[in-house]
Design a protein around this nucleic acid. Structure first.
Lengths: 143, 143
DNA sequence: TTACAAATCGATAATCATTATCGGAAAGGC
DNA sequence: GCCTTTCCGATAATGATTATCGATTTGTAA
């Protein structure tokens, strides 16, 4: 569980003023690794901060992303998900329940000879399909 | 250069009636491997088919995608790109000029032990950064 | 050919995530 | 305390995508 002061420190390290809104948003992402959307973050924090605006969530996430404190997960077409930036990994999205799973995958191992002379800043691995839970449920329903 | 009749054949193989609109759209994707967006496809075909509607482009692409004749490339946040489905490969998007480059990358080599019991239907590798051309241009401008 | 049913197409409106704008509030320096 | 800068929040605007639904075309059978 990351504390407020730890989060505030991370913001200061990146030269971002630790306002209450920014602390809360980054803290939420650090403690709930559920790849939330903007709307999800907004709804989760609203009870605690009734004056929070969705614009602020958008603005803050953009700041945090530029500082590389959070990452955008664009595995879904119509909405961006966010995650606290730790070690790089792959993402799997279940086309049935929509859940996003992390899995270890080293993108550095992918051969990039063809991209010689390119400056690569981001390597995303996005898999899709049906997760184990949904497969099991679907099989039971069939019987 | 893929011919109309070849394209029509591919549609029939997938039990899709080869209407003129569908042939033109799939033919465009097969012959111009530029990862176009819906709007790009629409604009390119409009001179030849003045009555074409953007709705039809959307509908047709959805049909072609479901038949796995084309793939959606969701490497950009706000717009979907399309490509004729051939051998799987990685995509690199230049954050400067927006161009999308293909590169050989075998997603099958990525270890998926953690996804045991999952049914995987799609494996996307999306890299981002700055392409060689843009790097060169930017350096010249600096001088 | 004619008639009818099904599939397809196209125009318009609706949806919804995201962005832009801008006035007001808070923070920080002097 | 005053002033400047930064930050926040409400509202409106944007733009890709989807939904709707009537019109057109296609396929089929008499």
């Amino acid at each position: 569980m990351k504390t407020n002061s730890f989060i505030a420190g991370r913001l200061r390290e990146s030269n971002i003023k630790p306002s209450p809104q920014r602390i809360k948003i980054l803290e939420y992402l650090a403690n709930y690794p559920c790849h939330p959307t903007v709307d999800r973050i907004y709804s989760a924090l609203l009870p605690d901060m009734p004056t929070l605006s969705k614009s602020t969530v958008y603005n803050t996430l953009k700041i945090l992303r530029d500082a590389r404190l959070v990452r955008e997960v664009t595995i879904e077409e119509n909405e961006v998900h966010y995650e606290y930036a730790i070690k790089a990994h792959g993402h799997f999205r279940c086309l049935d329940c929509g859940e996003i799973y992390d899995f270890q995958a080293d993108a550095e191992e992918i051969n990039t000879d063809e991209l010689r002379g390119f400056y690569i800043t981001e390597k995303d691995i996005y898999f899709k399909g049906v997760c184990g839970q949904c497969l099991k449920r679907d099989n039971q329903t069939e019987k």
